[in-house]
């Protein structure tokens, strides 16, 4: 880092996709901006600097700016990534930014992930289907810490949509659950508090829209900012659903 501080800062050139669907005169195009790089600069800092000093109409989304909330997925030189934790220092001087594909565009770099994930959650009934109603006077049900840790691992998905945007199938078939959806399903499948059995799960995931829609390119696993074990998730789901089929026969 000390080397970077002593040499002259780089001049970064941004090529940013622009389109405002609310403006009848707006046409999709690329705008160009230049700023000086600063130490430890992230795309969060860079995009805000561009908006605040050069084009205050530029649309993008950030909230936590610490890779927790999942707001700021975007294509960075063609690859889905979280803007907030992408260091410009890891990128060439020319940085191309596009909105995530597979989601509805709101404007410029901003896309509607909220609607996609809500629909996914409704379709897969992504909530605990409990055995008993909550008893506020009872001690909590026991769970081994190993199982709790395994569920937490799947629960860490921040629904940023990077895996969906990177998925060849999800880009062609809007109803494909994609890695985020299937990881969510797997998380509930392994949770002993959820009473759904293998036959129930078969209905949810054993289809073209579910785990058998995946053609195995696994870009999702490469781009996941939380480094979720998506290969294992797909393997787990295939194993569980195939097991169901054999049992049914």
């Amino acid at each position: 880092m000390s080397d970077k501080e002593t040499t002259a800062p780089r001049r970064l050139r941004f090529e940013i996709f622009r389109f405002n669907p609310e403006d009848p005169e707006s046409e999709p195009h690329i705008d160009f901006f230049e700023i000086n790089e600063r130490p430890y600069m992230t795309l969060y800092m860079a995009l805000n600097e561009i908006r605040e000093t050069q084009d205050s109409g530029l649309q993008f989304d950030f909230a936590c700016r610490s890779a927790i909330c999942g707001s700021c997925g975007m294509l960075v030189n063609g690859r889905p990534a979280l803007g907030c934790r992408t260091l410009t220092g890891d990128l060439p001087e020319t940085i191309r930014l596009h909105p995530l594909p597979a989601f509805k565009l709101i404007g410029d770099l901003s896309v509607d992930t909220g609607t996609w994930f809500r629909e996914m959650a409704e379709r897969t009934e992504a909530w605990i289907h409990e055995q008993q109603p909550f008893d506020k006077d009872a001690q909590e049900e026991r769970m081994s810490d190993d199982i709790a840790q395994a569920i937490y691992e799947g629960d860490r998905c921040i629904e940023c949509g990077c895996c969906v945007a990177s998925c060849g199938v999800a880009n062609l078939k809007p109803d494909f659950l994609a890695a985020a959806g299937l990881n969510r399903v797997a998380r509930f499948m392994m949770d002993p508090r959820d009473k759904r059995d293998d036959a129930d799960w078969f209905e949810v995931v054993a289809s073209e829209q579910g785990v058998f829609g995946c053609v195995g390119m696994m870009a999702c696993a490469d781009v996941c900012p939380k480094e979720l074990p998506l290969l294992e998730v797909y393997a787990y789901l295939r194993r569980r659903t195939l097991g169901t089929k054999f049992l049914a026969d």
């Binding site: 909530w127 506020k136 081994s144 810490d145 569920i151 959820d194």
Partner: peptide, 18 residues
């Protein structure tokens, strides 16, 4: 305590006693 246990009921994977 009720709120924490309710979250367990909703599915929060609380770290457990070993």
């Amino acid at each position: 305590p009720i709120a924490v246990r309710e979250l367990a009921h909703y599915g929060v994977p609380w770290t457990r006693v070993r």
